[in-house]
């Protein structure tokens, strides 16, 4: 379990990125931080692997304060996947993934074998293993990024808008892939996005944030949809635009699901 205890971060230039934030993230579930740009999502995420040290408060992983742990060791024990994949441009795909194993002290052969295995797990053709990142599409790079995050089999996976830079079709694919992986692997995932649909799709627990890391609402997607805590949340999840308020109409003998604006969005299956 990851726990934020009354945490805050003010950067050296005086920017208060996070005011006072407390939350528990249950193990083996996906928690999604969602909110508009600059609300402190990345800052919150990076406090878990000590890429950002809090100004006050604590982050605990399984009841151990991360500030008591060696930074490098801590980071090696946590998977990190970011937007634009962040791969090393001078290393082949396979080496980008295997390097994480090497850093943890695995020998060459073991690292490569494991890297091949995990590339397969994320659905990447093995013929791409010997390419450089620049020779891959954005979606393929993102898969490599996920593979790199998973290769050491960490308990925790931090994902910072990992699918933000790919087109909607590929994003859809990657999201489905992540759901499948999570069913198999049961990681504790902390996922950052500003796309509420993505948050509802992937999150077991969704955290809607306002500026300064202020929590507008925490809950499962169903809880939030059923009972938005306030106007901010209703508008953020799109209830006000009517896209999410659906009803059934009968047209030409078929039951069609229609939103408030009258647009047909689906059919009702029996």
């Amino acid at each position: 379990m990851i726990e934020y205890r009354s945490i805050g971060k003010t950067f050296a230039d005086g920017t208060e990125a996070v005011g006072d934030f407390s939350l528990q993230l249950p193990s083996r579930t996906t928690t999604v931080f969602v909110g508009s740009s600059g609300c402190g999502k990345t800052t919150l995420l990076r406090m878990v692997n000590r890429m950002v040290d809090p100004s006050h408060g604590q982050v605990l992983i399984d009841d151990v304060d991360v500030s008591t742990r060696n930074k490098v060791e801590l980071r090696r024990s946590i998977g990190y996947v970011m937007q634009e994949a962040g791969l090393l441009p001078h290393r082949k795909v396979i080496d980008n993934v295997a390097l994480m194993m090497r850093l943890k002290g695995a020998d060459k052969k073991e690292a490569r074998d494991r890297a091949h295995e995990v590339l397969e797990t994320v659905g990447l053709d093995s013929s791409l293993a010997n390419r450089y990142p620049a020779q891959l599409s954005g979606g393929q790079q993102q898969r490599v990024g996920v593979a790199r995050g998973l290769v050491t089999d960490p308990n925790i996976l931090l994902m910072d808008e990992p699918f933000g830079a790919v087109d909607p079709i590929v994003r859809d694919e990657l999201q489905q892939e992540l759901l499948r992986l999570q069913r198999e692997l049961d990681k504790t995932i902390v996922f950052v996005t500003h796309d509420i649909d993505e948050a509802f799709l992937l999150g077991d627990q969704v955290v809607i944030l306002k500026k300064g890391g202020e929590i507008a609402q925490v809950g499962s997607p169903a809880e939030i949809l059923a009972k938005p805590a306030n106007d901010f949340v209703s508008s953020f999840i799109g209830l006000e635009k009517g896209h999410r308020k659906l009803h059934v109409e009968e047209r030409n003998g078929t039951r069609i699901v229609v939103d408030e604006t009258g647009k047909a969005t689906g059919v009702l299956s029996e």
Binding site: R46, R75, R76, M82, G86, L88, P89, M100, L103, K104
Partner: peptide, 18 residues
Amino acid sequence: VSPAVLDAATATGFAPTG
């Protein structure tokens, strides 16, 4: 050298010398 790549390297567990 791209700062984003360096940041990614640090975040994935490279020690400073490495």
